[in-house]
Design a protein around this nucleic acid. Structure first.
Lengths: 231, 231
DNA sequence: GGAAATCTTTGATGTGGCGCAAACTGGCTG
DNA sequence: CAGCCAGTTTGCGCCACATCAAAGATTTCC
């Protein structure tokens, strides 16, 4: 399979690169199609490659010693992933699993310095990306520290609808299969509690649930709840 | 006050730089002494500078809308801070307060690209630094999601003793004034709970407490507890 | 040295949400 | 179409931890 450079060029990450540089990057790229449930890489494995998600949706998970799993973050189309740590670490700190049919491009890890050299802006952009992720992580830490479960779930759902929302008749539909378990692992709670919360919201007409489905029907109410505004 | 370049050179961050480059960086540097309780910068303020901590200890905090405070991370000597976000953001996402008498160097934010250009290794190192911080943040998210309070506190104390520990006769002393409130804000709990936990530990001979003081007397027991090994 | 301010300890009480258990539902398979 | 399986819902009891309250302990300041 060949990848057209125009696809890359449409991404903010690469928009400033010359065609020649892009082509040279693509020479070392190997595309990979991932089916839902399959992993792009596994926690602890040697970091041989770094990746770009072209299409689909991934979740990056970590498991604790006692087997509990958490979702560290979602990967959306256009995101680089599996690279931040590769610079200092030898192994991947988490597992990247496809939540939907996905298409990724893989590059050998040792190509990274060369690409950066070729295009210093890439380094700056990459750094901004990590900086942003760090900030998101801190936001999440703050939420986990101070907010009760319902607010955290509200924030998570809003984030999902922003990053992966597709407008449908009744509202904004999360555009990939997502379970209560997933939401629980993103918010540090149990699927039971998430189920209860979503049921309550559904009764209030804020969301519409379903098996691996979620549609936000009243974003405003959800936002109020997330911001702690009682009604 | 003048800063000697040998101080910088002893830091991993700068060890590969030439004397000339270091001198040129130092020309734009302004040293600042901060007394405990004073802030280097405040959350929301325009990010005019980025900083290096030479000596002392800082805590980076964030406040939520409803006034609750959390400690995002500690800054230790040799750490760059207040820069990661400055690349994409205009303002500081948190407040940096001195926990002990501290000495920082400030550079104008707009110097950053120039320094990077002058010394590309700086960019790589900086990125590794942020990558590492991101990983730490994820670790903390995982802890907050899955672990109960006592284990989280154990992890926090162990981290502190590693990053800011000074050997004393009875064990490893945290080398700056730290209150139960601080530990609570690092672990997402209340000072009451932290106090209770530390009292219990003290009874078991694992730590020695005191007003703004903490000494780990039995790191092994603490480690076992943090790793979930019951005794 | 006494008073004020700050930090810490400890008790009593309440509750959010977890753990366990069981029933339910929609979708897929043979 | 029956049966199975993964995901979801819901009830109930309990416990870890927050909250409220108040009294010590240390340091600081006049």
């Amino acid at each position: 399979m060949k990848i057209d450079r125009t696809i890359l060029k449409s991404l903010p990450l690469f928009e400033r690169m010359t065609d020649a540089d892009l082509d040279s990057m693509l020479q070392h790229a190997s595309p990979r199609r991932i089916v839902p449930g399959d992993a792009v890489f596994e926690q602890g494995a040697r970091a041989k490659s770094f990746f770009l998600l072209l299409h689909g949706r991934l979740k990056v998970t970590q498991v604790t010693q006692d087997g509990q799993q958490i979702i560290v973050r979602m990967v959306h189309p256009g995101d680089l992933f599996g690279f931040a740590m590769a610079l200092r670490r030898e192994d991947y700190p988490g597992t990247a699993v496809a939540a939907a049919e996905s298409l990724v491009i893989a590059w050998p890890t040792d190509m990274w310095p060369r690409f950066v050299e070729q295009n210093p802006r890439l380094a700056v952009t990459a750094m901004q990306t990590i900086g942003q992720r760090l900030e998101e992580a801190h936001t999440r830490i703050r939420e986990m520290s101070t907010e009760e479960v319902e607010k955290r779930v509200a924030h998570a759902v809003l984030r999902l609808s922003k990053q992966a929302g597709r407008p449908v008749e009744t509202g904004i539909r999360i555009d990939f299969p997502i379970s209560r378990q997933d939401i629980a692992e993103m918010t540090g709670t149990t699927l039971h509690t998430v189920s209860r919360i979503l049921s309550a919201w559904e009764a209030k007409g804020m969301v519409e649930g379903g098996r691996q489905k979620l549609t936000v029907t009243d974003p405003q109410k959800l936002l109020n709840l997330a911001d702690g505004i009682r009604d």
